[in-house]
Amino acid sequence: MNKPPKAFFRLFLWEIENCLNLPVLSLIVASAILAVLVQSTSITGFTHDYGDLYSGASTIFLILTLVTCTLFSHSFAGSFGRGDLKRMLSYPVKRWQIFVSKAFALNLVIFSIYASTYAMNLYINAISLLEPMFYVSLFTIFLQLLFVCAVSVGISMLAKSELMSIVISFLLVFGLDNAINFHGISTSMGRFRNIFGYFEQITHPGFHYASSVAVTFERFTGSIVFPLLTAVVVLGIVFVYFTRKMEID
């Protein structure tokens, strides 16, 4: 019999393979490439300018959020409807292993797709591989991914319906973006602007791609802490519920 860490690793690989076998995977990669290319349409040649990393971020966040909501809802809520979860829980695996392997595998696959397609910017805009704003942007994409992951998993556990979960998660995340001040820390672009702008002040003083107004340290930390804290709290609650209380019928 497998020891728990080994069983977890097996499940993790299985989940990765599941993701790579998704019929819509090519569509997801294509949409990520499109999102990066759309942001670079204003570019007519090599600009050597990191500013384009900021200008088209809203398209990436839109598509990233939609893809993340869909994949997490498919994996978590969908597994209730299809009976996958029931089947998985008939094997000698622990509930935490299923939960964590799903979450890890999906985050890894989605982030890998977006990080690699986002890296096209390095070529398109002739940006140096050492450009710090590139890594700041990647970090913000990761934060957004984590935030949407937490919302989608939370809704999945409540709705237990794939379609409902996709719709509710997407509306909730984008509802926040539109209902609240666009520059607030609860919106994806607001957080991106604050994080990008703060680092821009440090690494490229005098440039103001992200914000003409100085970004304060409080806004910067708030933009990191808000999605992180939301993810930790929501995923923590859902994890405890799933592993200790949840009945699967």
């Binding site: 019999m1 996958d84 029931k86 089947r87």
Partner: peptide, 29 residues
């Protein structure tokens, strides 16, 4: 100590039978 076959056919459709069973076998060690 159990083996279970549920009523629903919830198997990963894109996997081959051998690949799917290989994954299950690995879980059983």
């Amino acid at each position: 100590k159990l083996g279970v076959m549920h009523e629903t056919n919830a198997y990963p459709g894109n996997f081959s039978a051998r690949r799917f069973l290989t994954h299950v076998a690995k879980l059983y060690g």
